[in-house]
Nucleic acid binder design. Structure first.
Length: 926
RNA sequence: GGGCCGGUAGUCUAGCCUGGAAGGAUGCCCGCCUCGCGAGCGGGUGAUCCCGGGUUCAAAUCCCGGCCGGUCCA
């Protein structure tokens, strides 16, 4: 994928192609140059300088100027998408570049783009370099990628390389006023999100400010490149980077988070270091790789390079790192929360926790007394100026950061005791590298914090320079030990079976209330003695979107009758699994009868789900997204993204709002739209059900009398026409499914009555058993529990009493063997606890053996022997028991220390056993 | 989605590797000391050892399955 990129602009303006002496890449420049002007080939030389003639006053101004510039040049502005890509694609969690928004639907040519050409400023999150964010001076976890895109179809050309470079050049030179001799276009390649192409990196004084990608390859899963029919102009202009360039601030954080940093410094009391120092560091680090920058001893290296005092440098810069991280991470976190990502131990939620943990790590290392939530709150106040929608999740952000801080402190406590355990157990005073890896992997304590804790506890520890490499090594070992995955369950009918069969006409969409229909049999399959029928049209809803399939009957014109047990979709074809009496022939006309009672209930449940989801969102906040759903009878479930189990009060409010919507009798409307149109019209909130593999979407919306939309979702299910048909919604259970996901169990319409009847009946049954009225049940149960506890303690006291009586008997039955007092006692089905009481009392004195023969039912005898501790040293109870047992049938046993037991299953003479035990002990003592 | 660590009185925790009477601390109750408080001393109380199955004469301990929590990675 290497070819020379030449453009009309270069020829006209007199740009020439050079080869970088350092990296070997080709680049275009107006003036002669040895190196490509990219870091690390060339250090930054824009800091403290004024390269742009017209410096924008803020990020917003720069963004607006960019968007307007491209609007003036024939581009339509497209509003930003969520940062959570998982809402419309399955292969990635987060949006890492603006093109992710259009993959794969637009890039594959399946749906048209929302506009063509278009311009957008898309928030992105990249966590690959998270380790050095806040340190390197140039890396951010969250950034806005400003971009203009053109999609060139074989039959419709928009623009390609010449025009793209022309636009970029004009933007930088005319709009921002950067002298054109400062701009270098470096030839390279770019790939991401499944596509690739040649590109120009636009460089100014060591800084890459934009990438102009000419995308015309598809990257196959095995990493090969395939030529695409569509040619896509995919550009990316880093908003923060360009702003940094224009302002000439010492690093990207000081430029981007200027005001926030001032406030944070006031709050925390950290001094701002001299700009010249920050600039020197950023410039030096611009020539270092990510690996180098992530080293724990980075500030020693830097101090060495800049002839500074290492400890002092480290102390100053750790404080700055912390401020930078808080500013950057809070913004990314707020974006994620707004899109329904909540901290969790797995899945995408872990990425949110990762950001929080990084902030907390510094809070702890720097002994900062201010709660993290306060720091986040400070940032958020500024963030809402830039991103007003974040106001909606402000409280959530604060609450979450508080919760996570508490959690982190707990984790630190367990870590502390773990460290002490390791030291105590291994009888060592120094932690090994393996210990450090274990502490991080299993308890989440980063080595720096282990070091701090160890200092307090006077335990030695040394962080190996290759700590993260050791960790990766361990992960790889674990991955290698893993076995291959199991096979997925397959549908009995495959896409190959239905090839050539026309798309089934979906009556359930045309009329969701159709319960009877006539159709023609197109195909009948027999697999594993089951019949699968394909019709030309059907009112049977196939399983999908969390709605189970319909059931019912199919009757043929010649009198065969089939029970429809399951309905599913294969491609565009709907297949009915049926149990038939009689023969079904292809071409025959049939009558279909949907089990209406069941189906109508499911429709109410489905519409109920939409009503409920929206009610939850309005009560709990904008971070609520649907995380999963299953409609069922009598109870349906709805999983949402939320960080804790809602209070009873909140649940009541949700229920109230949902039922108000039902009572208001709002219309439920559906329409089919092309994906991009639907997104443009309703926003990406429509993707509640997750990934939908279709170019067109069915939109289901509930509309308020004012014309306002109560709820709108892309949904393939069947719905009632009016919300009033749902009747009533009752939440019957709420539980935490996993960290960050809450499950609502609910029911609707007459199933609510069934549920209440069930509750009532069990309450009545309980009352009957307790012999009281329903209202007295709680009180009665409380009393019962109390008296049970009392009784238990009474039994225990009685047992003590009994044991002292038994003790008397034991004392009377003493037989002496030499100077050892041996006593036998026979009991029946007595608790072990009682036996032990007696044994403890008897063997408290020295030279004593107690033999308890506990008859268990009529088949078994349990013999337990207890000795005082001095006897245990003299003879082995185990040997004695083994010896006795070897002479008795069905006897097994053993023991150790002061205790042994044997079990005899056969019927035996007690006196004989007693005699044998005594003899055996005698022989051992003698 | 995968890996790792863990689940023992109200709370914290030992024991688990190597199977054999579940131990300690804290809390709670009673008593002593004290003008009183704090503290100390003595006594008592409190555990289905997460659940289910298996192995065994015997399981907190070993094996299998599940549930719950923690954590790292993708």
């Amino acid at each position: 994928m290497e070819k020379m990129l030449e453009t009309e602009l270069f020829r006209r303006r007199g740009f020439r192609r050079y080869r970088c002496k350092v990296c070997g890449h080709y680049f275009w420049s107006l003036v002669e140059r040895d190196v490509c002007c990219d870091a690390p080939c060339m250090p930054y030389s824009f800091i403290g300088e004024r390269i742009c003639k017209t410096v924008p006053a803020s990020l917003s101004e720069l963004r607006e100027r960019y968007l307007r510039f491209f609007e003036r040049h024939g581009h339509a502005r497209v509003r930003k998408y969520p940062v959570v890509a998982a809402r419309w694609r399955q292969d990635v969690y987060l949006v890492g570049a603006s093109i992710y928004v259009f993959q794969p639907w637009v890039t594959e040519g399946i749906v048209p783009p929302p506009a063509n050409p278009l311009v957008i400023s898309q928030p992105c999150i990249r966590l690959t370099d998270v380790d050095i964010v806040g340190r390197s001076g140039r890396h951010l976890t969250g950034f806005e990628m400003m971009a203009h895109h053109a999609f060139n179809y074989p039959d419709r050309h928009v623009y390609w390389i010449d025009e793209t470079v022309e636009l970029a050049h004009e933007f930088f030179t005319k709009e921002l006023g950067i002298p054109e001799e400062e701009i270098v276009y470096k030839e390279s390649t770019w790939s991401g999100g499944g596509n690739a192409g040649e590109c120009f990196e636009v460089l100014v004084r060591g800084l890459e400010v934009a990438t102009l990608v000419f995308m015309h390859y598809k990257v196959t899963p095995d990493g090969k490149l395939e030529e695409m029919p569509m040619k896509i102009v995919d550009t990316g202009y880093g908003l923060e980077r360009i702003y940094w360039l224009c302002t000439g601030k010492p690093n990207v954080y000081e430029a981007t988070f200027d005001k926030i940093l001032t406030e944070l410094r006031k709050l925390v009391g950290f001094e701002k270091p001299d700009d010249r120092l920050l600039a020197k560091l950023a410039i030096t680090m611009s020539q270092m790789s990510s690996e180098e920058l992530s080293r724990p001893d980075i500030y020693t290296i830097l101090a060495d390079k800049l002839s500074l005092e290492p400890v002092q440098l480290r102390n100053i810069m750790l404080q700055q790192e912390f401020l930078y991280i808080v500013a950057d991470h809070t913004r990314s976190l707020a974006w994620m929360i707004y899109d329904g990502v909540l901290p969790s131990n797995s899945g995408i939620g872990y990425l949110a926790r990762l950001l929080l943990r990084r902030m907390l790590k510094y809070v702890h290392l720097l002994n900062i007394e201010i709660p993290l939530s306060e720091l986040c709150s400070k940032c958020a106040k500024f963030l809402v100026d830039e991103y007003p929608e974040l106001k909606e999740i402000y409280n959530t952000l604060i609450e979450i950061s508080d919760m996570e801080e508490k959690k982190f402190r707990e984790t630190l406590n367990t870590a502390k005791s773990q460290i002490m355990k390791i030291v105590k157990k291994g009888k060592k005073s120094v932690l090994s590298a393996d210990d450090l890896v274990m502490l991080y992997d299993a308890y989440g304590v980063p080595p720096e914090i282990v070091e701090q804790i160890c200092k307090e506890l006077n335990i030695g520890v040394e962080i190996p320079q290759n700590f993260y490499a050791l960790l990766v090594e361990k992960k790889q070992r674990e991955a290698a030990a893993q076995e291959g995955e199991g096979e997925r369950g397959r549908k009995p009918i495959t896409i190959d079976d239905v090839r050539g069969i026309a798309k089934t006409q979906e009556i359930f969409y045309e009329d969701p209330y159709a319960r009877e229909f006539r159709a023609r049999v197109l195909k009948v399959f027999e697999r594993d003695s089951k019949k699968y029928i394909v019709l030309d049209r059907t009112a049977f809803y196939p399983e999908g979107g969390g709605q189970p399939s319909d059931t019912g009957r199919i009757i043929t014109e010649r009198g065969a009758e089939c029970k429809v047990v399951y309905v599913f979709k294969v491609g565009n074809v709907i297949v009915h699994e049926a149990e038939c009496r009689g023969d079904v022939q292809e071409g025959e006309e049939v009558l279909g009868l949907v089990d209406w009672d069941r189906r109508y209930s499911l429709m109410k449940m489905h519409t109920g789900t939409h009503i409920l989801l929206q009610a939850i969102r309005r009560v709990l906040g904008a971070h609520i997204w649907q995380a999963g759903v299953q409609k069922d009878i009598p109870y349906s479930r709805l999983d949402v993204t939320h960080y804790k189990v809602p209070s009873d009060e909140e649940i009541r409010k949700i229920e109230e709002l949902a039922n108000k919507i039902i009572e208001s009798d709002l219309p439920v409307e559906t329409e089919f739209l092309i994906r991009t149109e639907a997104e443009a019209k309703y926003g990406v909130r429509i993707y509640q059900g997750g990934f939908i593999p279709s170019p067109t979407l069915r939109i289901v919306k509930i509309v308020e009398p004012t014309g306002e939309i109560y709820d709108v979702q892309a949904c393939a299910g069947t719905h009632v026409k009016k919300t009033s048909e749902v009747g009533i919604i009752k939440i019957v259970g709420v539980e935490k499914l996993q960290e960050g996901v809450i499950r609502f169990l609910f029911t609707t319409s007459r199933h609510v009555l069934e549920y209440l009847t069930l509750l009532e009946r069990s309450l009545q049954d309980t009352a009957r058993v307790l012999g009281c009225s329903v209202s007295e049940v709680p009180d009665k149960v409380r009393k019962l529990v109390d008296s049970l506890k009392e009784t238990e303690s009474y039994v225990r006291r009685l047992e003590k009493l009994v044991s002292s009586f038994l003790m008397e008997q034991v004392s009377k039955n003493i037989v002496n063997v030499r100077d050892i007092a041996i006593s036998f006692i026979t009991v029946e089905d007595v608790s072990d606890r009682l036996v032990q009481d007696v044994a403890r009392m008897f063997t408290k004195e020295s030279k004593r053996i107690l033999v308890v023969m506990n008859k268990r039912g009529d088949t078994g005898l349990e013999v337990k022997m207890f000795t005082s501790s001095d006897i245990a040293k003299l003879l082995s109870l185990r040997d004695i028991v083994r010896e006795i047992c070897s002479n008795i049938e069905e006897c097994r046993g053993g023991g150790g220390g002061t205790f042994a037991q044997m079990n005899i299953r056969a019927k035996v003479n007690l006196d004989e056993i007693k005699h044998r035990i005594l003899e055996t002990i005698r022989s051992h003592v003698g």
